[in-house]
Design a protein around this nucleic acid. Structure first.
Lengths: 264, 264
DNA sequence: TGCCGCTATATCGCTGAGCGATACGGTCGC
DNA sequence: GCGACCGTATCGCTCAGCGATATAGCGGCA
């Protein structure tokens, strides 16, 4: 049985051996995932290489996905189709946290005229799920659905701090800790110190750790069992805020996160 | 050959007979699409019924999708997984119009302190792709990825007006013209009159046609061939705007749409 | 003009992936 | 305890689909 066909240089899935595991489904998703590494129209051959599949399979899968609206034929290749947005939207609509978060975030935005976000915890990354732009809002390059590393974002740190220490440690160990800016803390000692601080304060503060000139403050949102599942965070420009002044916003953010944790 | 297994009452896909069409792929997407009709956690049996598949297949497909992160196991059933957001994000990143639109929309937002959106044209519906909230912004119930009918939104009408008349007529004929509010224009005569107006003015104005108390104004964005592919629109509350005053914003919206059409 | 490299598209026989019926065990509510 | 639901597991038959291969079309280069 051919279990794993790991080609060198291509990101190939973990081989799963399981009577109920359909590799046809896996191949389908692999093909769609190819665009996350190559965000541009791809030819069939490129798609095959990027997804780690043979050309014939790609031809058939792509043909089918295109017929269903999940791939879009462009002059210079195939691109993700509009229907993918619908599926992401299904997720947002089904996740009750999102709906509950919107009024809480707006309330917070009223008090703090800066960017206010909700991110969902997903192991080594967090995902922007709701985003309220700041008043001036320079460039909202970051869109809903964007993933950020857990270890170097204020929301992610707040979540790690709310996790049992062993689990937080495990997430850090699994993380790719490539620095995003010169200020990103990547060493385990430094990170542990920050988590200890966050555990004590109930929130996390990050200074230019994911974007230069940006200061962010995040607090964890917990589910019914008390486990952290998301974070509320605010982000502002260092050009306009003294860190000490920004830090004074913490009670507002904490209050919002706690309110959202209690709603259900 | 069993071609179509259309069960009564369930939305079942068009049967496609094609040597290159993989029904395994179709089944996979059908399963994921089930949540668009039932946005809540579903049991295997519910999922089977909603997707029009048999229980065994659903067991296998769902098992696989869950292993891949596209379904999430909840206490009371299966729900869409976070990875679906990633795929939607891939679409947004790959579509060059989105990136180009952001600065244009911000520029427009500076001049008009109301909600400013970009929607993509997709036949009988348009999809919100970029959304800038208004200053006060009461409830942003509408999220990125949401579909709205083309025929009764200002952006959709502006697009239809920019299309060759026969094509616009075909879209209208295909559309499900269920009214969204008491003011929604649904009869073909009335719609044709509105399209004629929009063709003359270069923009479309809708009064409470998709949401009570809301006035919207939209203009089409065209691709390199001059075909409409998207629309920029602004939305405001009738409690704060006289229709005549709102209409005077048209040049700003038109200018933005034209600027975006020329960028590439 | 012809060759090469790229593309997409189409064909076809073999075979094992996966279909779907069926069975099993747990947990509710009546 | 019965029935109805849940998820889970098993298994033999068969046709979906794998993947090698062939064809056709479109520039670019010599």
């Amino acid at each position: 049985m051919k279990v794993s066909t790991a080609e060198p240089g291509t990101a190939v899935p973990a081989a799963v051996d399981d009577r109920l595991f359909l590799q046809g489904v896996q191949r389908t998703m692999q093909l769609l995932e190819a665009f996350s590494r190559h965000p541009r129209p791809l030819s069939l051959a490129e798609l095959a290489a990027a997804a780690g599949l043979d050309k014939s399979s790609v031809q058939r899968i792509a043909h089918t996905l295109q017929a269903l609206g999940y791939l879009d034929r462009q002059p210079n290749g195939l691109a993700p189709g509009k229907k993918l947005l619908d599926r992401g939207f299904d997720f947002l609509r089904t996740e009750p946290l999102i709906e509950r978060a919107v009024p809480v975030l707006h309330e917070l935005r009223k008090a703090i005229p800066e960017r206010v976000d909700l991110s969902l915890f997903d192991d080594t990354s967090v995902i922007y799920a709701v985003r309220l732009q700041s008043k001036r809002e320079t460039f909202s390059a970051t869109l809903v659905g964007r993933r950020m590393p857990t270890f170097c974002t204020s929301g992610g740190r707040a979540i790690l701090a709310a996790l049992p220490e062993a689990e937080a440690e495990a997430v850090l160990a699994r993380s790719d800790r490539t620095p995003l800016t010169p200020s990103t803390i990547t060493d385990l000692r430094g990170l542990r110190a920050r988590l200890a601080e966050a555990r004590r304060d109930g929130f996390a503060l990050c200074l230019e750790e994911s974007l230069r000139g940006e200061i962010t403050l995040g607090a964890a949102v917990r589910d019914a069992e008390g486990r952290p599942v998301a974070a509320i965070h605010v982000a502002a420009s260092l050009a306009e805020w003294e860190p000490a002044a920004f830090r004074r916003l913490a009670p507002l953010v904490l209050h919002a996160a706690e309110a959202l944790s209690r709603m259900r």
